[in-house]
Each structure stands twice: as structure tokens, then as C-alpha cells.
Design a protein around this nucleic acid. Sequence first.
DNA 1: TCTTTTACATACTAAGTAGTATGTTATGAT
DNA 2: ATCATAACATACTACTTAGTATGTAAAAGA
Lengths: 210, 210
Amino acid sequence: MAVRKRDPEKTRTHLLQVGFQEIYQNGFQGVSVDQIVGKSSVTKGAFFHYFPTKSDLGYAIVDEFLREMILERWIRPLAAYPNPVQGILNRFKKNIVAWPEENLIRGCPLNNLSQEMSAVDPVFREKLQVVMNLWIDETEKYLKKAKTDGYLKKTVQTKQLAQFIVTLQEGTYAMAKTLGDRKVFDSLYGSLRAHLEILSSSPTRDDVRE
Amino acid sequence: MAVRKRDPEKTRTHLLQVGFQEIYQNGFQGVSVDQIVGKSSVTKGAFFHYFPTKSDLGYAIVDEFLREMILERWIRPLAAYPNPVQGILNRFKKNIVAWPEENLIRGCPLNNLSQEMSAVDPVFREKLQVVMNLWIDETEKYLKKAKTDGYLKKTVQTKQLAQFIVTLQEGTYAMAKTLGDRKVFDSLYGSLRAHLEILSSSPTRDDVRE
DNA sequence: TCTTTTACATACTAAGTAGTATGTTATGAT
DNA sequence: ATCATAACATACTACTTAGTATGTAAAAGA
């Protein structure tokens, strides 16, 4: 056929994308289904064809969107670094430098959704938990690698450190959001770096590549 | 004087208290005015007599309630410790140990409100910013004291450290909320403690003080 | 004591809200 | 070509929402 008039997969992901954006900007409870379909080019009928309830859209965003976002932003890039500790610091730096101004007061989508919905909806809680644990666990894998490769002191508890790193990263975005000030990025990056330098067996070099 | 039939101050603070509880449990956008007046013993007419809009209740909670809560929980107790660094660690420990089980997945009220409302409502943002800055600034005052009293290395940048401490504390509650696991309290407390020990001129111990 | 003002209470409204009922049309299988 | 089904579209509903209109009783002031 010449032109496709229907593309269900595309329609669904389109709804996920628009839904993500709207939720990111207004919060899950602050957004209506009408608002989401209004911003996209599909109708309410289509929306409820793909997602039986508004919550189901939110769940799908966590499962398919936020999960992917975390892996892409924080985990996969680490594979390129011989020293994972250096990699973690480097990626943190790059991510905060590249963080767009309009997102400063919007914070981290994962954290936003978790702080808003975890206590309210147990399904959200469980799904957000899974993504957060994935983030921490994958970070820990790289810390273990760093340890065996001699980049981290043998006494370092990798799980504790992984939790610390992710917590501080999330906390950094949350604090930047609350204070509405980019400067906290540098300040907290500096603190994380100092912390990691202490735990490194060889000094973590100063030249963070651009 | 016989019995007071009306006590405007009490009615108002009652609404603040009930409002705080309901918002803490359901989020600001997840709570309705009807819900709040339903849980209290006043009517809708009374509510709107004190607060022209639902948002105004939220603002008042930040200004009068959260601000007080932060000072009482995190700042004022520090006055009792000769070594403020020890005080900060000690209070953190005490607060997480005493943190009730049902609040674990509810997180920190200040952080909740900020993550939910800062991006949505600029008035909330400004008010939450004020409270957060108060927390950081008051913490820094104690860090400066610690420095002059010889408990912290002279090289320590107190503002950066204050931001780091508050961010990690907030982050700790946020992570415990997301993971629904008390163990992260101990893990992150351990990390903060290790961090502060490095910056202390004399070893920070639970039982030993200089 | 009388009057004004504050502190409530009751009933209502207009504008959303998530979700449904009921279509119609495209598409893939037979 | 036919038919079943998936992919939408439109119109509606039952309910909730913040806020208002209007009233009344208790205090405070004169």
C-alpha cells in the first residue's frame, strides 16, 4: 500500500512521549487525559484503546520510558571508560553541564514521579522501585569492576557506595530544582568527586575530558 | 468566662494541621478541599474564610509549618553539641531511627511538596526555596562554628559542605521512600559519616569527643 | 444596648474529570 | 472479495472539583 493510515506502534509511543512530557511538566496528578490527547493528535477513544486507565499510561512510562532513560543516560556510557569511577564522575559532569535551563526547575523525571506517586499508588511504587534498583545495581557492577581492576580501595563496600552515588545524583537534581540554581550542580559534583577520590586507590585525575 | 464557642486561631491551625497531614499522605494535587474539611470538623465556609484558595493553604503550610518543622528537627538540637559535626551526625542518626514505619514510604514533607509543586507553581517554588535556604544557611552557621572551634579542617568550604549535608539528608529520605527499605538509612548514614570524618580535624566517634 | 464585624454554616454552580457507549473505517487473514 | 478484528473517532455520563452566594450567630466595639 502506498500510504499507511494507521500505525499502532507509532501511535502508542507517541502517546507515551506526549504523556511523559505533560507529566514531567505538570505532575501525574496535575495532568488530565484530555490535556494529553489535546497535545497529541489522537483522540480520547484512541487513548483508552491503548491504555485502559490514566494510571496505565503512567505505569507504561515508567516501565518503558524512564527505565530506558536511566540506562541510556547513566549506565551504558560507562562501558567506554577503563576506570569506571572516572566514568561515573565524567558522566555526571557531562549530564549536568548539558542539562537544559528549562529543565532545571523540573528536576529528574524518575524522582519527581517517585516522590509524587510512590506513597499514593502501590503499583507506581513497585515499578519505580524496580527502575531505581536497576540503576543502583548496574552502578554497583561497574564499581565491582573498578575494584577488581584496582581503581578502588579493596575496603570499599560497593553496594553502599552505589547507593550513595545514585542518592547524591538524584539529590543533586532535586536540590537544583528546589533552589532553582545551577550553581548547586558544581558544588555537589565537587563533593561527590572529593568523596570518590578518597576511596580511589590511585588519585582520580583532574583533567575531566570535555 | 464560660466556654469559648469560637477560637479563630485554633480553627486556623487545626486546618493547617489537617491540611498538612492530608497533603503529606496524598500530595497537594491529590487532595481536595472537601477531603480536608471532611477530616477536620469545620465546614467549607470556614475553610475559605481563612484561605481564599486551596493554594493559599499550601503556602501557609510551607511558611508556618514546614519551616518550623525543619528548624525543630534539624537545627535547634545542634545547639546542645560542643562539636557541631558530631551534632549533625547524631541528629541524623536519631531522626532516622525514630522515623516511624508508616512514614517510610511517605518521605520528607518538604521534599515531597517541592518535587511536586516547584515546577508547577512559582509561589510554591519561592516559598519552598526560602525554607530550603534557611535549612542550608543555618547548617552552615554550625559548620563555621565547628571550623573555628577546631572540629573541621581549615580547608573545608562550609557552604559547599552544608549543601552537601542537606542534599544527602533529603536524598536519603527520598531513596528510602522509593526503595521502601529502612536499610538505606543506615547505609547512607554510614556514607555521610565517613565523608565527615575525613573532613574532621580529629576523629569523629560516637563515644569519643575531643 | 445596639451595632458592626468576624467567624462560621449551607446550598449551590460552573467547569473539569476519568471513563464509557457506540459508532466507523482501515487492515490483515481467508 | 469477504469478513473479522484492530484502530481509531464522537458524543455522552456520572462524578468530583474549587470556589461562590447567601445566610446566621457569636463576639467585639460604641
